[in-house]
Write a protein that binds this DNA or RNA. Structure first.
Lengths: 247, 247
DNA sequence: ATCAGCATGAATGGATACATTTTATCGGAT
DNA sequence: ATCCGATAAAATGTATCCATTCATGCTGAT
């Protein structure tokens, strides 16, 4: 991931270990490995152009993040994620982001945060004004969506929520970067949630914002999980359809 | 920590890195370091009787857990925990454990889980039957309390909740192992919560169990945080008053 | 043919040596 | 006296080497 993918304090990759960690994380989240694959240290080290020592640091971090499994003397393996994992992660994300809304509302949104949310909502309006989903607009919509959610989490002022939501993004596909961009009605409704959430937050109506956000996330999760169960390959293709284009 | 302090999958310390990590974690949580202290690698390695390599993996893990801070080329430091951090961690813990209650109730508690909760509640009744707080009974009460909470979290069947609650225990004092054992009325009320929570779970009343648990945790957190603000040293002494005796 | 046991190879864990960065110290100039 | 810079010391980051464990495949006995 290119630094903007870590929520709270995204430090640039200064050490080789950082570089290795971000590279491997990106590879995993984009599906370059199969579940259960061994991560051979010598081999990976050579691939990434670093020695085993920083590589092992990177692996230790990723294992602690839950992205890979570790067994002493048996090395690291790509964690096997089931659709259940994705559903569960969305459940927790929904709860935590809902909590973030309530806390943000209760503590009183700052003027700048309110303005930013308004601006993001309007940007979404512009993107969707054609009333059709153009693939070229997905990156812009995604950026808007990510910033919307991050703004609220930061406004909540509870670092643990940010930490945990960030970690739940370590489950492949459980990220506000993954957007099923194929049904205008769904996207439009989702953006309408944003409208109401921003309004509720501005009004200091924490409970309403909480409920809206919780449902907002849960619905996205169910949609994704149902798709995955119905047709895994198609859903995966969809989720990553524009990733290469963005670079 | 002696292995029983990690919630989900407490692997025994097989590697030197495991040993170093658990040792350091225990030291930090028991207050052997001052906030902001540097963790010199050579020095720590010698103290723990391991070389720098496994020590560094241990430090990487602890940093990922949020127990220590890391800056490239500047090493690791003991994280500075403010009372605010503790309040925030309890807020999240309350929410997640409340969620665990709802999920556990909705999925239907297994017979064995219900029985275990009942047994734990009865054990608490026995411990408190004298209607006075004897320090010698604190360890038993704590074990009961820890198992009560863990049972529910496991019954929820959502691994992320367990993960995050476990991580929130990495904030010093934010653990169901820390119990202010000096006011019978408070403890009695807290245990009465357990009664109601167990009952609500057995009845499949998820919302009630959720509300009860959330309040249960929030109150404990407020009590602790208020004490810490009023008299930090006394509160700390209280929180750890029996730790040496238990070993 | 199957399975136990052993030997061999490969991969991981740990220790040490080297390189790079940071931090502290000292000297001098303003 | 203070500030600045150069230099030295110390600490971290990386690479390499050695030790230990695990997996594989073979041999041989039942």
């Amino acid at each position: 991931m290119t630094d903007h993918n870590s929520l709270p304090n995204s430090t640039p990759d200064v050490t080789s270990a950082d570089l290795a960690a971000t590279s491997i994380r990106e590879m995993i989240l984009e599906g370059h490995f199969m579940p259960g694959d061994r991560l051979h240290q010598d081999q990976l080290a050579e691939t990434l152009g670093v020695s085993r020592t920083p590589l092992r640091t990177a692996l230790a971090r990723l294992a602690q993040d839950g992205l890979i499994d570790y067994e002493p003397n048996r090395g690291y393996r790509i964690r096997r994620f089931l659709v259940t994992d994705i559903r569960e992660a969305f459940t927790v994300r929904a709860n935590l982001e809902g909590l973030a809304c309530r806390l943000a509302a209760e503590s009183g949104m700052s003027r700048s945060d309110r303005d930013r949310l308004m601006a993001l909502v309007e940007e979404g309006d512009r993107i969707l004004s054609n009333r059709v989903l153009d693939i070229s607009q997905l990156p812009a919509y995604r950026r808007m969506n990510v910033e919307f959610h991050e703004t609220i989490i930061n406004a909540a002022g509870n670092r643990w929520i940010g930490r945990f939501v960030h970690q739940s993004h370590n489950v492949p596909l459980v990220s506000d970067r993954v957007i099923l961009w194929d049904d205008f009605g769904v996207i439009h409704r989702s953006h309408d949630d944003h409208h109401r959430i921003a309004k509720a937050l501005a009004d200091g109506d924490g409970v309403r914002a909480q409920n809206l956000m919780s449902e907002h996330v849960i619905y996205a999760g169910q949609l994704l999980a149902d798709r995955l169960e119905a047709d895994p390959t198609a859903a995966l293709r969809h989720a990553f359809q524009d990733r290469k284009a963005e670079r």
